[in-house]
Amino acid sequence: MNGNRLKELRKERGLTLEQIAKKVDVKRATFGRYENCDSEPKLATWEALAKFFNVTPQYLVGWTDEK
């Protein structure tokens, strides 16, 4: 998992942890753990994050550099 991509995308868009957490229906602390690689999202959450950021799930997890 690549938490840095989550943080990078969030910061590029000028969003807070709270804003993204609400959009993908997780707690703020949970999203913070995703960014710090302390926890990994479920598949449905990966998909919601990819849709929200308009990138592929593969990009989010670091399997590809193509958004």
Rank of each mutant, 00 (worst) to 15 (best):
residue 25 D to K: 13
residue 60 L to W: 07
residue 30 T to Y: 09
residue 18 E to W: 13
residue 57 P to N: 06
residue 55 V to D: 03
residue 17 L to H: 15
residue 52 F to Q: 14
residue 62 G to T: 08
residue 59 Y to W: 09
residue 17 L to E: 08
residue 6 L to K: 02
residue 7 K to G: 07
residue 46 W to C: 05
residue 33 R to G: 02
residue 25 D to C: 00
residue 36 N to W: 03
residue 2 N to V: 00
residue 38 D to N: 12
residue 24 V to H: 01
residue 17 L to R: 15
residue 30 T to K: 12
residue 41 P to S: 02
residue 18 E to Q: 14
residue 49 L to S: 00
residue 62 G to P: 03
residue 4 N to C: 05
residue 50 A to L: 12
residue 49 L to Y: 03
residue 12 E to G: 00
residue 16 T to V: 04
residue 40 E to Q: 13
residue 2 N to M: 14
residue 30 T to W: 06
residue 55 V to Y: 07
residue 64 T to G: 03
residue 38 D to T: 07
residue 23 K to F: 08
residue 5 R to W: 08
residue 51 K to S: 06
residue 1 M to K: 10
residue 6 L to C: 04
residue 54 N to T: 00
residue 39 S to N: 11
residue 24 V to I: 12
residue 4 N to G: 09
residue 5 R to V: 04
residue 14 G to E: 11
residue 47 E to R: 11
residue 42 K to P: 00
residue 47 E to M: 08
residue 7 K to E: 10
residue 16 T to H: 09
residue 58 Q to K: 12
residue 48 A to P: 00
residue 27 K to F: 06
residue 20 I to N: 02
residue 21 A to D: 02
residue 40 E to M: 12
residue 38 D to V: 04
residue 31 F to D: 01
residue 7 K to Q: 11
residue 47 E to K: 07
residue 2 N to P: 01
residue 52 F to P: 01
residue 38 D to A: 05
residue 10 R to F: 12
residue 37 C to P: 00
residue 34 Y to K: 04
residue 46 W to T: 01
residue 43 L to I: 15
residue 59 Y to Q: 09
residue 44 A to M: 10
residue 19 Q to K: 12
residue 16 T to M: 10
residue 35 E to S: 06
residue 11 K to A: 04
residue 56 T to F: 00
residue 35 E to L: 14
residue 61 V to D: 08
residue 8 E to D: 09
residue 49 L to I: 01
residue 47 E to Q: 12
residue 32 G to F: 04
residue 28 R to I: 02
residue 67 K to G: 05
residue 21 A to G: 01
residue 57 P to C: 06
residue 18 E to P: 00
residue 58 Q to N: 11
residue 59 Y to G: 01
residue 56 T to G: 02
residue 49 L to E: 03
residue 6 L to V: 03
residue 55 V to A: 01
residue 29 A to M: 05
residue 23 K to Y: 09
residue 12 E to Q: 15
residue 48 A to S: 11
residue 50 A to T: 10
residue 11 K to W: 06
residue 49 L to C: 03
residue 24 V to E: 05
residue 21 A to R: 02
residue 20 I to M: 09
residue 13 R to M: 09
residue 37 C to V: 11
residue 48 A to Y: 07
residue 8 E to V: 02
residue 41 P to C: 07
residue 45 T to Q: 14
residue 28 R to V: 03
residue 17 L to P: 01
residue 21 A to H: 03
residue 50 A to Y: 11
residue 2 N to S: 13
residue 14 G to M: 07
residue 48 A to C: 01
residue 43 L to K: 13
residue 11 K to N: 06
residue 44 A to W: 15
residue 40 E to A: 09
residue 31 F to C: 02
residue 67 K to R: 14
residue 48 A to I: 00
residue 25 D to Q: 09
residue 14 G to D: 09
residue 20 I to K: 06
residue 41 P to F: 15
residue 24 V to P: 00
residue 44 A to T: 10
residue 16 T to S: 15
residue 59 Y to M: 06
residue 30 T to M: 07
